[in-house]
Design a binder for these strands. Structure first.
Lengths: 339, 339
DNA sequence: TTGTATGCGTTATCAT
DNA sequence: ATGATAACGCATACAA
């Protein structure tokens, strides 16, 4: 309830000086009045209105993150990275679920912009040939005019800085691992149709297979990013001809789904078939799934740091080349050398 | 960039009337000027500063939710409930992770208060005899003075409305199910030490066992809320004397951890021992775990709705008796009638 | 039905 | 070193 005016009155100074000591500005203030103001503030339990500050400085300590679905561990890890960094810097994070709808991303970005968020981070992958991407790009541009820095964690055609992981390379490296283990017939359970992340991961798989002269032994099957999709895909694989040497799923959840289907069918993993995923979510570690660790937490944290730093030092950094954080192959128990 | 002043100028009216048509106030406005203002607003791409609005109305459309860890599916489901409801009402949700530290909950609440959040929701359980709870209570009281409505999703000694699930009854009902299936020796893998949710669930288990005259056959072992804890607990159970008829874990993750330990040890579940959890997280459905479904999503959604409704209709509802949302037993494949 | 004026809580500019 | 005072963008009580 106590405002700056209250404090200044209590301390017998003007609001200007009260403001100066309370926000630690570089402006000189006598030690005496400083302590008087501090005492008054403490006595009144003063705490500044972040709203008023944001209104006048034209930028807040709010950082937004727009995910597809916070219940998806992939995104919650990113959100955690954002929030840890935000909190450490005295910022607070705003969260929105867009359910992969570009239109939702647009509206969410706009409402965050109306709160003068210092920045907003897009965590979700876009779709290939998404007709709404231009609209999103326009919203991003408007946000920028309003002073909000937007950052994308995936490659998207919206003119803004991107901090990302290399999906293609991740799939490529994972496939390389399998190939080097002697596997030849390898099946790939794809991600959701139309997503660029899906394309990138499939491409990485196919590229490595082709390089190994195994193109003909590479089989892509429809899938998705969740347990059920992986489970169903594995079932289809089981139903058709004989089993491949290895199965790589577009992400960990699908891989675990496939793993379960296989084991329910009494297939020995990795004895008969190796299985691997991508992401390295907590569940992967738990079931001993071979996967490639993506810097999800770091992506969120670094994006947040970037908007924080931008706020501290004018509006220096824009767009520029994508920052690509490193991934890392994590061999575990679901893959082994082919007999 | 366009402000209300810009719009009013463009439309040739005062900011007052511009404000009136743009915020849909009940104030009468002629159809003619209304359309002029609307046109001007559209032309300029006007959108109101949520900051300025919040400053003057002394309440924002911000809803905060403080969880222990958003990566934990238990909390991400709650957060999803909050965000869905918030979004639908034009609010935006602020998220903070407190890692079960009461001191963090306090500071996070304060910064949300400084943004004049319409309300903040505490999702995490407290600790028994937590010496810091009084401080939290004080912070809650201060927040209320500032007009922010706080709601707790668990029983805590901070004077504020609570919307919750009955942890004790959930454990009780689950145990009842096992007992009615003929199980007699039942082990309970506890949650993290000191948490009130842990106490409540253990109590529910013990109560039902006692009523069945099975107190002596009830065994509580230390555990936790994650895979590893459940896994380790199951290992300990395996090491000691002979196996119980059934194992109920304090939550689904621990149950799945135990499940894995058992199966790795070639124990047939539910053939030799039944296993059950609490929460009904997505993973439970996937592995076919018997559990009790807690209204996590609903808790978040209802809490959000309550702060939204409170904003719409003065400051009517305070404290009052806890609202308890129903849980539901979900029998699946990890439990069966005892031979 | 429309306009004027005031205040919300700060920061920042310009004096003093 | 300190103090008036003008914004910031909007809502609203009071006039007209």
């Amino acid at each position: 309830m106590a405002s700056l005016a209250d404090v200044s009155r209590e301390a017998g100074v003007s609001v200007a000086t009260a403001s100066r000591v309370l926000n630690g500005a570089t402006h000189p203030v006598s030690a005496d009045t400083r302590s008087r103001v501090l005492a008054a503030a403490a006595r009144l339990g003063y705490s500044p209105s972040a709203l008023a500050q944001a209104l006048v400085t034209r930028t807040s300590r709010l950082i937004g993150v727009i995910v597809s679905d916070i219940v998806n561990p992939y995104f919650s890890v990113i959100a955690r990275g954002v929030d840890d960094m935000s909190t450490r810097a005295g910022y607070v994070t705003m969260l929105s679920n867009a359910d992969r709808r570009t239109s939702s991303e647009i509206t969410r970005l706009q409402t965050m912009r109306d709160y003068r968020a210092a920045g907003v981070i897009f965590a979700g992958s876009g779709y290939v040939d998404d007709p709404r991407t231009p609209e999103l790009a326009k919203a991003v541009a408007q946000a920028r005019e309003r002073g909000v820095l937007t950052i994308s964690l995936t490659d998207r055609d919206i003119d803004c800085p991107v901090i990302t992981a290399d999906n293609r390379a991740a799939a490529y490296d994972l496939t390389d691992h399998l190939v080097s283990q002697g596997h030849r017939r390898i099946a790939f359970i794809e991600g959701p149709a139309g997503m660029v992340a899906t394309e990138q991961r499939r491409t990485g798989f196919l590229d490595r297979m082709a390089e190994a002269g195994l193109r003909d032994l590479a089989e892509c099957v429809e899938g998705g990013f969740d347990f059920e999709a992986g489970h169903a895909a594995a079932l289809r694989l089981l139903a058709s001809r004989d089993l491949p040497d290895a199965i790589v799923a577009a992400n960990d959840e699908a891989a675990v789904g496939a793993l379960n289907a296989l084991r329910q069918a009494r297939i020995d993993v990795p004895g008969q078939v190796s299985v691997a995923g991508i992401d390295d979510l907590p569940v992967a570690r738990f079931v001993g799934l071979t996967t490639v660790s993506l810097p999800l937490y770091e992506l969120g944290a670094m994006a947040a740091r970037r908007v924080i730093d931008a706020g501290a030092a004018g509006p220096p950094l824009e767009a520029g080349p994508p920052v690509v954080l490193p991934h890392r192959l994590v061999p575990r128990e679901t893959t082994t050398r082919r007999p």
